[in-house]
Design a protein around this nucleic acid. Structure first.
Lengths: 195, 195
DNA sequence: AGATTAATAGAACAAGTGTTCACTTTTTTG
DNA sequence: CAAAAAAGTGAACACTTGTTCTATTAATCT
C-alpha cells in the first residue's frame, strides 16, 4: 500500500522540518532516529528521503535557515540613531527573536559538533556575521565616547551570552512578562558598557 | 585471554571516567558508544560493567561529581568582606573554576536532557544551590545599598550566563590571558549591578 | 603452594541504526 | 481517459547498540 489518502507533498515537506526540529531540540540529534521523525510526521521512514538526502542535511538545513533568518531579520530593523539607541534595539531584538524560536536556538547552540566540517564552517560564518553586528555598535559607541569598553570583541561575546541565557529559564507563565525581562536585561547591558 | 598484564583495578576505574568525560564532551552522550569508551580505556566493552551498572550512571556520576566539586570548592573560598568584594571573588572564581574543567562544564550544560527524571532533579538541586550563593551576595549588596539591582534572581542568572560564556571562546593560546579576561568580565559585572 | 577472589576477554543477544529499493497508489499532465 | 510523474509503503541490507554471561587469567590471601 502506498499513499492512503490525498496528496500531501506540500504538507509533508514542512512537517518533516518542523517535527525534526522539535525532536532534535528535545532529545538531541544523535538520540533521534529517522523512524521517530517519520512517526511524528505520520509516514514511513523511507518517505523522508524524498525530502532530504540524509539525516545530516536535515540538521544542517535547520541550522542554516535559523541563522539566515536571524541575520536577515536583524537587517530589517532600523539601523539609525545613536550607538546607545542601536544597542537597546539589538538587546531587545535578540531577546524576543530568540524567545520566539527556542527549539531552533537550542539546536543551533547544541548540535554544532554533529555537523560535518564544511557545514560547521558555514554556520560559524553566519554566527560571526551576527556577532559582528553587535561589535560594530560597540565600536561606534566607544568612538563617540558613549561606551567605556575595554575590548569590543569580548564585550560582544559577553553580552550575547547574557542575552541568550534568557532562553534557559524564561517561561511565559512565570512571574515576569517578556517586556519586563527585556527592560531588566537592557538595564544591565546599558550599565555594563557605560563609559 | 583475560588480563594481559598486571593489576589495573585502581587505574581502570578512574580512566573510564576520564575517557568517558572526554568523549561525552566531544561527541555528546548519545553519540558515544560503550565500545568507544572501552577502546579509549584499552579494554573490552564488557569490562566497563565492573565499574558502572550502566551508561546512564556513567553520565550521572560525572555530572554529580562536577556539581559537588563546584559547590564544595566555592565553600572553601573566603566568604568575608563587602558584597562588592564577595561578588568580585565569585566572578573570578567562576571563570577560573569553569575554565579548568571545560569538559565537565560542557557536559553539565548539554546533557541534562539525557538524564532520567530523578537524576535530573538531583543535578538541578545542586545547580540551584550554586546560583543561590550568587543571589545571596546580590541581595546583601542591595540591602547595603552597594548594588542597584531590579531582580536578584534574574540578575544572578544573567551574570552566570555571561561568566560561563567565557568557556565558549577563550583559548589559552589567544591574545588575552585568563587574568586579563577575568579583569574585563569583573569590570562588566561590577558596572552591571552598580547602584 | 593452593585456594579464593578480582579483573578481564570474547562471544552472544535482541533490538535499533541510516539508507536503499522494488513496488503500489494517487495526482497531475497532455 | 491514458500516460507520466510524484508520493509513499514495507521489506531488506549490513552494522551498531547496551548489556549479559561464561570462561580464563592474574593477583591476593591463607
Amino acid at each position: 500500500m502506498a499513499r492512503t489518502s490525498g496528496s500531501h507533498s506540500e504538507i509533508t515537506g514542512p512537517k518533516i522540518l518542523q517535527e525534526a526540529q522539535a525532536l532534535f531540540a528535545r532529545h538531541g540529534y544523535a538520540a533521534v532516529s529517522m523512524r521517530q521523525i517519520a512517526q511524528a510526521v505520520g509516514v514511513q521512514a523511507g518517505a523522508l528521503y524524498n525530502y532530504t538526502p540524509d539525516k545530516q542535511s536535515l540538521l544542517f538545513g535547520l541550522m542554516q535557515s535559523h541563522m539566515q533568518d536571524l541575520t536577515a531579520t536583524w537587517a530589517t530593523q532600523p539601523q539609525t540613531g545613536s550607538a546607545m539607541e542601536r544597542l537597546k534595539r539589538f538587546a531587545e531584538f535578540h531577546i524576543s527573536f530568540h524567545h520566539a524560536r527556542r527549539d531552533a536556538v537550542f539546536i543551533a547552540y547544541m548540535e554544532l559538533r554533529n555537523l560535518t566540517p564544511e557545514n560547521f564552517s558555514t554556520i560559524e560564518a553566519l554566527r560571526r556575521r551576527y556577532e559582528d553586528e553587535l561589535e560594530r555598535i560597540l565600536k561606534d559607541g566607544v568612538a563617540s565616547g558613549a561606551f567605556g569598553v575595554a575590548d569590543t570583541k569580548i564585550t560582544a561575546m559577553a553580552l550575547i551570552a547574557m542575552l541568550t541565557g534568557v532562553n534557559t529559564w524564561f517561561r511565559e507563565t512565570g512571574r515576569l512578562s517578556l517586556a519586563e525581562v527585556q527592560a531588566i536585561y537592557w538595564d544591565m547591558a546599558r550599565k555594563a558598557v557605560a563609559a
